[in-house]
């Protein structure tokens, strides 16, 4: 990968403009035909001196069941950096259509806590373009630092799938890993998700993707009903793991069947402790209590803070 100067954005991009732009790009590509590049832009987009609104933070924390502490939840940081990530995927030289991409996986290293007064520098780039049995997948890597500092405090890798898009030179994986049969365990929690769950999360995260907002807007994009934001579900699961996770943790989630709204979601959240009784990691899995289909699963595990970081 050759080094390129990062593109420093004057301000955080507006998600709604990005969605409009993405729609225009999709139309243009339909008109002009998809371009057949199989190369990712190697540029990083950066935003500097970013601050968060405390009211928005509080609303976010309450919505996902976190206590309104001064520390930014890991999922909140994802929401803050999300427009920057989108801006990279919205570039003309990004080879996949942004609209309709499916969030497959998300992996966050929450290395040390950031408080709401922190001034943040953020960077996002795409990498690891690769095949998937149903299309092409790509990783979006986002990193957050304290303004002017070099060490990464928060790092997120989001894997998206462009369904049905096959680029030249990128092979489908040969062996399709057979999904293990899922047998629902005894739940430890049951979420009642109202029809307005998507709108409520859009309001605090800024992610007004139409597939989350209403039946009508979702239908316009080919979904039978609106679906819950994946990161809302994962953030609630993270909140349910509770304070045992500490300040420094790795948080992974793998999305399977989407959660159509409204619905009931059953979860099992279990904790594993070391011999000494210390928390090692928590696993969570969520499923539809009626059909037994798995919605998502993931882990939260301890991350050893690097020496020299502030406690």
């Amino acid at each position: 990968m050759t080094f390129q100067e990062p593109v420093v954005l004057a301000e955080m991009p507006s998600l709604s403009k990005l969605y409009v732009n993405a729609a225009a790009q999709a139309a243009r590509r339909r008109l002009l035909g998809t371009h057949d590049s199989a190369v990712l832009p190697e540029v990083s987009h950066e935003a500097r001196g970013v601050t968060v609104g405390v009211e928005n933070l509080t609303a976010y924390q309450h919505l996902i069941g976190e206590t309104a502490s001064d520390v930014l939840p890991a999922g909140f940081i994802h929401a803050v950096v999300f427009p920057l990530a989108m801006s990279v995927m919205n570039r003309d030289d990004f080879p996949l259509p942004l609209l309709g991409m499916i969030h497959l996986r998300n992996s966050v290293e929450h290395r040390s806590p950031l408080v709401f007064t922190a001034v943040l520098d953020m960077a996002a780039r795409v990498e690891n373009l690769r095949g998937h049995r149903a299309g092409t997948q790509v990783d979006v890597v986002a990193e957050v630092r304290l303004a002017g500092a070099s060490d990464v405090r928060w790092r997120g890798v989001s894997t998206y799938l462009a369904k049905g898009v096959f680029l030249p030179g990128i092979d489908k994986p040969t062996a399709v890993a057979g999904k293990a049969d899922f047998t629902a365990p005894d739940p430890t929690a049951l979420w009642q998700l109202g029809v307005d769950t998507g709108r409520a999360y859009a309001a605090v995260s800024g992610d007004f993707n139409p597939i989350h907002l209403s039946v009508l807007s979702a239908k316009a994009l080919g979904m039978r009903r609106s679906i819950a934001h994946g990161m809302y579900l994962a953030s609630r699961a993270l909140a349910d793991v509770g304070p045992a996770r500490g300040d420094s943790f790795a948080w992974d989630v793998e999305f399977e069947a989407p959660v159509f709204l409204p619905s009931r979601v059953a979860l099992e959240i279990g904790t594993e402790q070391s011999c000494s009784g210390a928390w090692k990691h928590s696993r969570y899995v969520a499923w539809n209590p009626r059909s037994g289909r798995r919605h998502f699963s993931g882990t939260v595990s301890a991350l050893q803070p690097l020496a020299g970081w502030p406690a």
Partner: peptide, 19 residues
């Protein structure tokens, strides 16, 4: 319902009962 689990007391006990 228990705020942190969304399960009613009866549903919680039902799990324990089965266990």
């Amino acid at each position: 319902a228990e705020p942190r689990t969304g399960l009613s007391m009866g549903e919680h006990q039902a799990l324990t009962t089965a266990q």
